[in-house]
Amino acid sequence: MQLTLGPVLYHWPAEQLIDFYARIADEAPVDRVVIGEAVCSKRRPFYEVHLPSIAERLARGGKEVVYASLALITLRHERRAERELARSGLSLEINDLTLLGLIGPQASFSVGPLVNTYNEGTLAFLAGQGAAHVCLPPELPLSSVEVLARAGEQHGVPIEVWAFGRVPLAISARCYHARLAGRTKDSCQFACADDPDGLSVDTLEGEPFLTVNGVQTLSERYTNLVCDLPMLRQAGVTSLRLSPHSGDMVAVARLFRDVADEAIDPDDGLAQLWAQAPERRFCNGFLFGDAGADWTH
């Protein structure tokens, strides 16, 4: 079972990103690391100059490095940047189908969880275009995951599922961090930088429900499929995605690694994940075809 560390979805300062990835390079037992900006193009200038050295550091640590595309590409400068990325020769993870029209016909690429790979027909089309690794949309139930994992096997495409972290639920042209601060997206003043794991959106009864991250909306609960790992393996899944949050991601990666290697029991893995951050609430409902927020254990 491979482990992929997804891109940091939140707006972390450059220094924090550099430190974070140095530690991932040295200590985290993950196979692939996706870096770069998937959420908001306005954040890129803060850290993009550091990406080559971050990539080099990760590669020296034995990680396969993949660059994320943006998930919603509308503005002229965003199209220009994505075109450059598509033609850079770097290993890419596409998070929007725009990239399919921009990359060369011979290129191989990964497909991120924000692309709608719901069925065998779509998977076959993407494989035909050069998809070499596919992370499925987080809302797919196990029955779909299983069909797609078998189809992926036939195409020689490893199939990954969203296994840890707040789930991306929506993306918008509107920035909610800016809206909450009484600003528009163009004059956001980077309100999102105050919230390293996003800003909690609670119901009027005080129940934490969603998380706002600029133009993105995520769940408040953290997906956690550590106990479902044996089932996923049996379904043919060959890769798990861990999404970075503040706190000890190296420890999270180690626990998933140990459970995947059957070095520790899934229940022990869960207990330790809970112990690390007792305030986190977990969910895995999508996998069982239930409300995504549900937790079955």
Binding site: L72, P137, L169, A291, G292, A293
Partner: peptide
Amino acid sequence: GRCLLSSYA
């Protein structure tokens, strides 16, 4: 086509 809010709830 990219919104899982309803599905999550």
